[in-house]
């Protein structure tokens, strides 16, 4: 058993990693809450956004991943919006199950296209601040992780405020529970479905920018995050914003402490354990409604 300071350091590291998980999970839970489907393309689209950050960093463009955040986030929003308009909205024929299949198909196409065009090699970017550390007690905290933590919190807070206060946010929440009522007050339901999907994907764009300084990208690098995001969303309660936030941090800490106590190889087992326990004990999740 490691000392208390080491455990504390593990908790802080887990919290820092959790910020990104929250961001990815908020996107997933928003799409689930409004469209009532799991976005199977979530991981693939995250991977795509990470490649976008990678190519923007490389010559001839050469933009720092943090500076690329507005571009990639905005681009991801537009991409998600158009994917909904041109693909999901057009071919779902009004059935939620079809959306599920379309996003699954989309992920297969994106994954294989990425393999074809980008090869299976692992790519990284070298930013000068990648190895910089801040000392906090027994913990050495990488600067990029601190930045990503606060940026993710800020973005999630801003999104939460937007959903709570703006007319569009209210309309999206209204739509999630009462589609016909929404139509009757004149809400353009299809457009807001596309906007919601776009916002969900925009979260991935932001996450990609925050991840790339310390992470690698390959055509399969989205998969790890999907499992985590999915567990986070189930843990927090499907469709719950607060749930995704709390869930993301719990998962981050679990993963970090699991790695500390059981070693890197077994560290992830804690996430699967949480997933199984939640399904057994509280299938609606921490913040989920009844049933």
């Amino acid at each position: 058993m490691p000392d208390l300071p080491i455990i504390l350091a593990g908790v802080i590291n887990g919290l820092l990693a959790g910020g990104i998980y929250v961001l990815v999970a908020v996107g997933l839970t928003l799409i689930y809450g409004v469209l009532h489907i799991i976005n199977f393309a979530h991981g693939s689209l995250l991977m795509l956004a990470m490649y976008a950050v990678f190519f923007l960093f490389k010559p001839p463009v050469g933009i720092d991943p943090y500076l690329a955040l507005p571009i990639v986030t905005g681009g991801a929003f537009i991409f998600g919006y158009l994917v909904y308009r041109w693909l999901i909205g057009r071919f779902n024929h009004g059935r939620d199950e079809n959306i599920l299949l379309i996003t699954l198909g989309l992920s297969i196409v994106i994954d294989n296209a990425a393999l074809m065009f980008f090869t299976g090699d692992i790519q990284t970017i070298d930013v000068p601040y990648a190895g910089r550390m801040v000392e906090l007690g027994a913990a050495f905290l990488p600067v990029p992780k601190i930045i990503s933590f606060f940026a993710a919190l800020l973005l999630c807070g801003a999104l939460g405020l937007y959903m709570a206060r703006s007319d569009t946010g209210k309309a999206i929440r209204a739509l999630a529970k009462e589609r016909q009522g929404a139509r009757l007050v004149g809400i353009d339901v299809d457009k807001l479905f596309a906007v919601s999907y776009g916002i969900g994907i925009a979260c991935l764009g932001a996450a990609a920018c925050l991840l790339m300084p310390t992470f690698y990208v390959s055509p399969t690098s989205g998969h790890a995050f999907v499992l985590i995001a999915f567990t986070t969303v189930v843990l927090g309660g499907m469709g719950s914003f607060a749930g995704a936030a709390v869930g993301g941090f719990i998962i981050g800490i679990t993963e970090s402490l699991g790695g500390l106590l059981l070693g890197e190889q077994l560290g992830q087992i804690g996430i699967s354990l949480i997933f199984i326990l939640i399904l057994l004990l509280r299938p609606s999740g921490l913040f989920g409604g009844k049933g």
Binding site: Q180, G186, I187
Partner: peptide, 29 residues
């Protein structure tokens, strides 16, 4: 031309105030 539907169709997850605000989502904002 606005309909009050059968079964009310209010937004159950929104507050009374937010429901009313969304009534002017397109008109009368």
């Amino acid at each position: 031309l606005i309909q009050v539907p059968e079964g009310r169709r209010v937004f159950p997850n929104l507050s009374v105030r937010e429901n009313l605000e969304l009534g002017s989502y397109r008109r009368g904002r």
